[in-house]
């Protein structure tokens, strides 16, 4: 195996092109190294992208935020400004692994690992985040929701890699929230999860919503019916019940060592409902809401 640490995106593109599919991108490495040690993958080349300066940066762009692909969870969460805009995504990112893992893990890595249970992905999908992809045929932008196509599989073409994640500008009275269920309080993979992003009007009615669910389908689900149940309501009893029902119906989970089908379906609706209440409190200025 070869280890490369290029200092520009072009070098990465060239290295990936030469490697003919036998290379892997190393960002935080918190999934990659585990998989290598477990003999699940055996790449010939690792391309470490952490020495590319622009990939380590968080920048303002058109009222939104561009997060470099090598920015770690710990670096992200130290930025009060971005956390104020996207508290739900900040929480989701922060929930990936331990403090030690936070020192390394990245949004792009969490996304490209393509686990249906990835914590940051439902929050990014709810946020309508967009990934910037660089490859042999140039640069393209793709909604985060379209990147995972199945467990462990992405829509990236050969030789492509993600250089940044873009979070759009926030409308007034908007907020997001993310909740996951795990058996312990930390260190587990999500058994079910829900990310919600909302915008309210002056009267507290919901005018825009996105609801994304994790660990209940082969990929993270964006549930339009769940959002529809919220829009035009004050996010009270009937709307929340309809939201939970829509989430339960959309979920197609499996039985595995982490949970059952019945459990995941029941719990994902509960999480979505609770996440809506947290996002609502935040959007209406009632503070940060309770942390899961």
């Amino acid at each position: 195996m070869q280890y490369l640490a290029p200092t520009s995106e072009d070098e990465v593109v060239a290295a990936l092109a030469q490697a003919d599919g036998r290379a892997r991108i190393l960002a935080g490495g918190t999934d990659l190294l585990v998989q290598m040690k477990a003999d699940m993958i055996a790449p010939d080349i690792l391309v470490d992208i952490k020495r590319i300066p622009e990939l380590r940066e968080i920048t303002r762009e058109g009222g939104g935020w561009r997060i470099g692909a090598a920015v770690s969870g710990a670096e992200f969460n130290e930025r009060a400004d971005i956390c104020a805009d996207w508290p739900g995504l900040a929480e989701a990112f922060d929930l990936i692994g331990s403090t030690q893992v936070q020192g390394r893990c990245t949004l792009a890595g969490n996304l490209c690992n393509a686990s249906p249970a990835a914590d940051s992905v439902p929050a990014m999908v709810a946020a309508d985040a967009v990934a910037r992809i660089v490859g042999p045929s140039g640069t393209r932008d793709l909604p985060v929701a379209e990147i995972p196509v199945g467990p462990g599989r992405t829509s990236l073409a050969a030789g492509e890699f993600i250089t940044s994640i873009f979070l759009p500008a926030r409308a007034p009275r908007s907020a997001d929230a993310y909740l996951r269920f795990i058996p312990r309080t930390e260190m587990d993979i999500a058994v079910a999860s829900a990310g919600v992003s909302l915008t309210l009007d002056d009267n507290g009615s919901c005018v825009a919503a996105r609801v994304a669910l994790g660990a209940v389908a082969p990929t993270v689900l964006l549930v339009e019916e769940a959002a529809a149940a919220l829009i035009g309501t004050k996010l009270e009893g009937a709307a929340l019940a309809a939201l939970a029902q829509a989430c339960e119906s959309a979920a197609t989970p499996i039985d595995d060592k982490r949970g059952t089908v019945a459990f995941r379906k029941q719990v994902v609706g509960v999480l979505a409902r609770r996440a809506v209440k947290i996002a609502q409190d935040r959007a209406s200025g009632k503070g940060a809401g309770e942390r899961a």
Binding site: P183, R184, T185, E186, M187, D188, I189, K257, R258
Partner: peptide, 12 residues
């Protein structure tokens, strides 16, 4: 592994 053999962590 300690990921899915879940022993109590400090916050539990």
């Amino acid at each position: 592994g300690f990921l899915d053999y879940r022993i109590p962590v400090a916050s539990d």
